[in-house]
Design a protein around this nucleic acid. Structure first.
Lengths: 221, 221
DNA sequence: AAATATTTTTAAGCTTGTCTAAAAATAATT
DNA sequence: AATTATTTTTAGACAAGCTTAAAAATATTT
């Protein structure tokens, strides 16, 4: 398998993530936005990467990942999420502090390192934000989860993950002591602004906006 | 403090290590050898690094580290050795498998990461090869140690470290189950080839060459 | 001290990954 | 369908870090 450069790896991961949301092929512009570079650079780079069989590229039509490209992207996500588990579980970082560091750690190539890290962490299936960690074969664990906002009143649930990953959002939840596994129940819905009054861990009652409610992914218990 | 690139970091570390052995300033050629690049590239790079106040450089006179350069180099050695402890103690790598991986890990910049890693590992003072780990202020722990070969007959000692760090040498010791803390005692010296018959952990008697004996650093017990 | 060998530097150029400005293609509007 | 707006590509250029070949400086021998 071709050993991609760090820059190529970042392209592959960005393409994977954009393709995950939008179904169609990934446009030059959306990639430029995601990678904080100019569209011209993107065109340049994706041409080279297509030549290396990492991408399918047709002029003016955007790109998709090849089998090879997908494999590398998945491996990167695996590494990133395993390192995030390490940083939170072992080094006691808060969940909003780990993304940047994992962005660097994920580029370290040794397969043996990841195999051993995985074992050391006891083969976690989800990262600190509730995102699934692909296994060594690249398979993701699927589970049903829904936005808290979709739940009815007085239905008990636990937090499985978050849809939004921004530092401010994660910090906001951290300050409210809401984390993976937290028990949540909707007590009241305000009609005019759709904000919710929720019972957290069967003790504290707090108010959250609809936006927050849509970004909390839960399962009924 | 200036954030050095990975290439610059490698230069600084190489200069630090060469300067450690040879007292004088570090020559272009020795650096080229250490970094596996051409002397021309070295000249190019050290000129730029001198402009950035990382090195003291005078044409045809070699380089020395500035205060800034020394600080970065020491920090790199700190990171490298802490990661090696992690790889051996936590991930159960053998001591000859960790150098390459630590070479990559050491370039990850987050100070918070290293602070927490250090705490997680319980503030180790030496790495898996017995080399001292500089503390956060850059200070190395000094201790007296001498080559096994310098010891007299029937004097008990324990292995503190190794002078040579090559993979074959480390593997050789690994296969003999000789490691940091192993108890060693010289039973016999062969006159004509200076090889030694040693008692390992008070149980096994084996023969080692003079060269091996000079690369084992011990203290009397 | 002169000749030779070695080391270091200069010069010119290459690759990777980026940029800006302008041209071309595609999409959206009227 | 024609015009306008947006997106994408091309063209030319640049910094970092490397290369080889040749020139200059230093070190070593005789």
């Amino acid at each position: 398998m071709y050993q991609a450069t760090t820059a190529e790896e970042n392209y592959l991961k960005a393409i994977f993530k954009i393709a995950e949301k939008e179904k169609k092929s990934v446009s030059t512009n959306s990639l430029a936005r995601a990678l904080q570079t100019s569209p011209a650079s993107i065109t340049d780079m994706i041409k080279k990467m297509a030549d290396k069989n990492l991408l399918n590229y047709e002029k003016y039509k955007g790109v998709t990942l090849t089998i090879d490209g997908n494999k590398i992207a998945t491996e990167l996500i695996r590494r990133h999420r395993l390192w995030e588990v390490f940083l939170v579980e072992k080094l006691r970082f808060a969940w909003h502090q780990v993304h940047e560091i994992a962005e660097e750690l994920e580029h370290i190539g040794s397969p043996e390192l990841i195999t051993r890290l995985d074992a050391f962490l006891d083969y976690p299936k989800f990262d600190p934000h509730g995102d699934p960690i692909p296994n060594a074969e690249g398979r993701f664990t699927i589970r049903t989860q829904l936005p808290l906002g979709d739940l009815g009143k007085n239905i008990e649930s636990v937090l499985l993950g978050v849809k939004e990953h921004s530092t401010p959002f994660l910090e906001y939840l951290h300050d409210l002591n809401i984390k993976i596994g937290t028990n949540i129940l909707i007590k009241e819905r305000t009609e005019y602004d759709h904000s919710l009054s929720i019972l957290v861990d069967k003790k504290r009652e707090i108010s959250i906006s609809q936006q927050v409610a849509q970004n909390l992914l839960v399962k009924r218990v």
